[in-house]
Design a protein around this nucleic acid. Structure first.
Length: 262
DNA sequence: ATGCCAGGTAACACCTGA
């Protein structure tokens, strides 16, 4: 009988601040694999026991105050690698990968924001995207199943933001950012959510300010990109807006997909 | 556009986020 697994990505904006909400969501949504971003804590301070008690294996790549990614899985997590290749001097904890269910290699990534665009932060974002694409390209030379999920900090089109004019000078909408995001898909990767839903104004992030959530003033910036052999197994995908409506919510909400494994 | 939230750090204000 084919085994179906649910994989989600979620920028939690501090795992410590989000722990009650995260545990509630793990129980309700019962994902098999979760890719987390913005832990905002070092590995020693990750609430490992609480997550393990919820039925997950845990691998983290943390950092004090900023960034930090993790992989949670109901299966063992094998061959874990931390850090995005291509720059030994980069100390920001924004990337890790591991193999789950013995056959699917998943990555959790937190792509740099890049604002303001007149600064080195934007140059770092573009370099990071070049490194990510190069690493994807190298990884895709075999027939392994792969998935890159996370907060890409790119608004791919003007239909993916409530007010494009307000974001005209934002790093998330710049042609350089969008071209690099498209280049990743041109490697043969499938955006899991967009394989099922091509409507505009489908969001994964709403700012805390200005009543953005209640007005549905959002952005679509969180994605699951699937290699061809993974896309062959894609059965469904969606955005779970539930967690964004809770008290003490993250500003991002989970994006998920279902894969049919042998 | 900025910093109207939110989180963290560290100190009773400032940085970052997108």
């Amino acid at each position: 009988m084919p085994k179906s697994i649910k994989i989600a990505t979620w920028n939690v904006n501090s795992i410590k601040a989000r722990l009650p909400n995260a545990l509630a969501w793990l129980k309700e949504a019962a994902p098999d694999v979760v890719l987390l971003q913005e832990l905002k804590c070092i590995d020693e301070n990750f609430p490992r026991m609480e997550i393990e008690d919820a039925g997950y294996n845990v691998e983290t790549h943390g950092q004090k105050t900023y960034n930090g990614v993790a992989i949670l899985s109901k299966s063992p997590i094998e061959d874990v690698e931390r850090g995005l290749p291509g720059d030994e001097t980069d100390e920001q904890a924004r990337y890790m990968e591991g193999t789950v269910f013995g056959k699917l290699r998943v990555a959790a990534l937190y792509l740099p924001n890049g604002n303001p665009i007149s600064t080195d932060k934007f140059k770092y974002k573009l370099r990071w995207m070049d490194r990510l694409k190069a690493h994807m390209e190298r990884s895709l030379t075999d027939d392994e199943m792969r998935l890159w999920g996370g907060d890409y900090n790119v608004i791919p089109t003007d239909g993916d933001v409530y007010n494009p004019a307000a974001f005209a000078d934002d790093a998330l909408t710049q042609p350089e950012s969008r071209a690099r995001f498209r280049a990743m898909q041109h490697l043969g990767l499938t955006d899991a959510f967009r394989a099922f839903n091509t409507l505009p104004h489908q969001y994964s992030y709403w700012d805390y300010q200005g009543g953005a959530w209640s007005k549905d003033n959002g952005l679509l910036i969180d994605f699951l990109l699937l290699s061809p052999h993974t896309a062959d197994r894609l059965r469904s995908a969606g955005i779970d807006k539930g967690p964004r409506g809770k008290e003490k919510a993250s500003d991002h909400t989970p994006v998920w997909c279902e894969l049919e494994l042998d």
